[in-house]
């Protein structure tokens, strides 16, 4: 019996490796190798040797720096906005049950089912020039609003809308670790809502908030579709900038340089995020 089990495990070793071989090969060929290639290929050139000229160009070029700066603050603002908007909903959903709460949850998760192309389209119809908001304002004899379409506010609004569900789910799963009894206990001793949030709930979900922010930063820093469709043409965010450099300017070297720079800016967040998933899953064991 034991011998049979053992041979089964030996077979498991080989067949295990065989079963994961294809995805792993694909991962190495199309992700890890390109990343390595991008990092090395932008500083080492066969024949001519080392050169950091493309990086020097990026960090001296005024337009590139303006794009980077735009990306940084849009990412920061959008991440914070997503958490700020999702937090009250998450708190409400954690501590309330009932049919109204179920509806709130369904609505808040709804954007998950709306592809970003459709988000962009719907955004233009609502907040774009002569969109429904303008229509309503005119009908009420109020002045039209300055449309956020093609300004940095455009992608920010679109990205907050689009990212609300996942932010909410991450926060909810963090709040799941705060037991209702521990909140009741604090309430019993006289803690008000504010004290409850800052002294009991916040310390427990600190790590969840950090992970949520990291997840958002990673997704936002190189966001492409919404900034491209809703954002300004100049300066532009890193996503559209990379795409234009690669396709329109046919300049893969500078596009790759920009990609490596985004990797560098996101490295810390990537580390935080992957560590959190790896810890949460405790590996596949």
């Amino acid at each position: 019996m034991i011998a049979a089990l053992r041979s089964g495990m030996m077979g498991g070793r080989l067949s295990g490796l065989l079963l994961v071989a294809l995805p792993v090969a694909l991962l190495i060929w199309l992700v890890l190798w390109p990343v390595l290639q991008a990092m090395v290929g932008t500083v080492y050139f066969p024949g001519t040797g080392f050169s950091t000229a493309s990086y020097a160009y990026f960090f001296t070029d005024d337009y590139s720096l303006r794009n980077l700066w735009l990306t940084l603050w849009v990412t920061a603002l959008t991440s914070v906005l997503r958490v700020t908007v999702a937090m009250p909903i998450a708190l409400y959903l954690r501590f309330r049950t009932g049919s109204v709460a179920a509806l709130v949850q369904a609505l808040a998760l709804f954007p998950m089912f709306v592809p970003s192309v459709l988000v962009a389209y719907a955004f233009i119809r609502v907040l774009g020039p002569n969109g429904i908001v303008d229509t309503v304002l005119v009908a009420l004899h109020l002045p039209k609003l300055a449309s956020p379409y093609l300004t940095p506010a455009g992608p920010i609004i679109g990205l907050v809308w689009d990212g609300l569900p996942l932010t909410l789910l991450l926060l909810l799963s963090g709040l799941g670790r705060v037991s209702i009894a521990s909140v009741d206990a604090a309430r019993d001793l006289g803690a008000g809502s504010f004290t409850l949030f800052t002294r009991i709930i916040l310390p427990r979900i600190q790590s969840s908030i950090i992970v949520t922010l990291a997840f958002n930063v990673l997704g936002l820093f190189s966001a492409f579709t919404l900034p491209f469709l809703l954002g300004p043409a100049s300066p532009e965010m890193m996503g559209p900038y990379m795409q234009r450099t690669f396709s329109d300017n046919a300049d893969p070297l500078n596009a790759t340089t920009q990609a490596v720079i985004t990797f560098a800016f996101c490295a810390a967040f990537g580390l935080i995020y992957v560590r959190a998933i790896a810890k949460g899953r405790k590996g596949p064991a």
Binding site: A181, D184, D188, A191, R204
Partner: peptide, 27 residues
Amino acid sequence: PERRPTAMVFQSHALWSHMTVHGNVAF
């Protein structure tokens, strides 16, 4: 609850895991 002269001990003890014993009692 906070305005009643009652105090509850919960089934799952509901201690605040980020505070020490002293912190829990002193809260």
